[in-house]
Amino acid sequence: MESDLITLGTSLKLAFFTTMILTLLGTPIAWWLARSQSLFAGLCIPLLALPLVLPPTVIGFYLLLAFSPNHLFGATWLDWFGSSLAFSFEGLLLGSIIYSLPFFMQPMIIAFRELPEDLFKAAASLGANAIDRFTTLVLPLSKHGFLIACTLTFAHTLGEFGIVLMIGGNLEGETRVLSIALFDYVETLNYERAHLLAAGLVGFSLITLTLVQWATHRGYRASSLSTR
């Protein structure tokens, strides 16, 4: 039971940091992608959606090769930080960020595209600078977009399995997450503990998706009100 709590802690920590980093890095990129008409942006959008269709094993395989000190990325990382990314929490975090990228970016791009352009022009003509416009207009108007993107990212990271299996190494308190512990319980026929974790994940995911559904619904009403 105590080991399950440690595992739950690792999972929550991973989901939290993935969501936080994606919010910080992904928001400006999503804003640019939503507005840009350039060919480069047009190429970036399908690239960012790639983790949605690729099996996690593909990403896990490439990450395992990239983390290896035999290759440039892994060797450079080892040089700078003195420890390898494979079998570490930081390595899992990097994997989760890539894996959950579309779950954050897609809702944000859609949310930003729905914002009325005229409003920004009006605000600019009244003397609001870019930062003012972002904090007083963009953020409040795309509140529901953030809520959807963050909950989806968080929930999707909690459910991550294939990548962790390939690059994690099953270290307690470091890389053993809920889905891995569940896999181990099923394999060792410990169905009682497996049920506990599985039911917990089902319950949590259901609540999350209900929340997203509710936010989407509210978001539609909010955006239809604002354009009226």
Partner: peptide, 20 residues
């Protein structure tokens, strides 16, 4: 530092790819 693979093949692969 023990790194666990699901089976001996994965333990082998961790070394083969240079990660352990």
């Amino acid at each position: 530092k023990l790194i666990q693979g699901t089976n001996v093949h994965q333990a082998f692969q961790f070394v083969d790819t240079g990660n352990a």
